[in-house]
Amino acid sequence: MLDAFASALALIATVDAELAGIVGLSLRVSLSAVFFAGLLALPVGAAVALFHFPGRSAVIVLLNALMGLPPVVAGLMIYLLLSRVGPLGPLGLLFTPTAMVIVQSLLIFPIVAALTRQIISDLWEEYREQLTSLGAGRLRAIPTLLWDGRYSLVTALLAGFGRAVAEVGAVLIVGGNIAGVTRVMTTAIALETNKGNLTLALALGVILMTLTIIINGLAYGLGQFARRRIG
């Protein structure tokens, strides 16, 4: 364990270009996935919270259940979709970072949507009469509630980011762990483990953990700052 921490420090200290590329790709892929998943999941989660429609309970159960979607299954589904013999084959997206963004978005969409639904539904309890009185219908209430729930929703997005950046099975299948192209932190860790380089693998793990902690810290700090500034 100590060896791993020492190696991690050494890796960081030497500013290894390959490592920097891997770390950069991990962050770009997972942050993009959070962005696209969030773009869809926040309004969808809020809409499910506010609107009553036939099959709403089924949608809620499905979203909650899909939070546990096995990454390998998601990976296979996207593989079959993007493979040259699949429906989206002509786009040539398999084994590219774009494919990894797609599969990670699929994995974190249910997490962000389900948590958003819970957060917005609690907030709606509190806001419903006030917003109705001010003349905002349910549809108009969605952006209002998303904005007023922003500090809690950031936590939902971070949960999605955590799942995306820590996930290996899905990105391995659709990304292919190609050196310099689709190799991210987790697939690099899996590769080094397979090579028996446990110390290096653990060192990469330490770096991944550190990055995750930094990003969560930044989000928390920004949240506190914003809360003081704009309430």
């Binding site: 770009r28 892929v29 942050l31 993009s32 962005f35 696209f36 773009l39 590219t96 970072p97 774009t98 963004v101 192209v181």
Partner: peptide, 13 residues
């Protein structure tokens, strides 16, 4: 920011 990220990924390939 999100768009920039996505574009940077699309360019890399």
């Amino acid at each position: 920011l999100g768009m920039a990220l996505a574009v940077s990924l699309a360019h890399a390939q």
